[in-house]
Design a protein around this nucleic acid. Sequence first.
DNA 1: CGGCATCCTGCGGGATACTG
DNA 2: CAGTATCCCGCAGGATGCCG
Lengths: 163, 163
Amino acid sequence: MKPDDLGVHPRTSSVHAVMRDDPGPTAEECLGRTTHFREDMRHGGGSCHAVSDMLSRIGDKWTLVVVSYLGEGPMRFNEMRREIGNISQKMLTVTLRNLERDGFVTRTVTPTRPPQVEYALTEMGHCLLVPVTGLARWTLDNIARIEAARADYDDRDGAAAGK
Amino acid sequence: MKPDDLGVHPRTSSVHAVMRDDPGPTAEECLGRTTHFREDMRHGGGSCHAVSDMLSRIGDKWTLVVVSYLGEGPMRFNEMRREIGNISQKMLTVTLRNLERDGFVTRTVTPTRPPQVEYALTEMGHCLLVPVTGLARWTLDNIARIEAARADYDDRDGAAAGK
DNA sequence: CGGCATCCTGCGGGATACTG
DNA sequence: CAGTATCCCGCAGGATGCCG
């Protein structure tokens, strides 16, 4: 039963495994080493790929977009759908569900004639925007350099192996 | 020709399109609105999905891991392969190639009998670690809350729709 | 209106085998 | 040692259709 069932939480189950027992190499496995990271990572006791996991979460196609829209204030489903424009209702649903599950947004159903559902960022949701914005700022500040590096790289192998 | 060819740069081409002309909705499309983001995003002139793009880049399965390992110092190919352990040589190659292309790592070939190739983080590579570490720290600081929220959510729908 | 369920496709990414 | 080239599979994610 439930063949597809909208892929909500089956994938993020890995974090559970790491956080609970996980007898083997906790800190030494994934992001294990690295001075920079280590220094900042001996907080949670060595949960390493939890960070990669988080980045994959917010790094997916829609999460950040949705969060940023909600950052301005609560919105309803189709309102977001229209504003964002190119998102499918499936992905909006899935994204919102995952965000709700992680405690980043709240879902409030107002049972009117045509039912209204309002989504809003939680405190933690807003909180998340802070470091994310930091990375966003960095990206925008350095996008030119990255662009240049890419063009340079593409030139070289384009000229060499081009044909 | 080149049927698979290791997927290096074909995907990141989207950024180019955005940065150059792109007559349509630049800032208004993707992360367009959002006070928080907007405030911090009128830097680059409204490149919005460049940020999502960047997050997808570093949010992939291995980029962050590789970068963090290199953050400790230069390493050779199989050295990394051994240290990381569970990465395939294909993904190591692809990840390193992309990082090199973006200007985050340098690739130095020392033509000895068995050739040596050393990878090292560039200044920009190290620079990238700063905001990323910020997000990593936040994740580790809040992973417990996220965990709790998830467990809570799973309980409720587990008890309700449980069967 | 706000979903869930199904089909289908692309591509991320692992395993394997072959070169220089 | 450091890759490159293939094959193959799973899953993110788009399109469509149905339901309260």
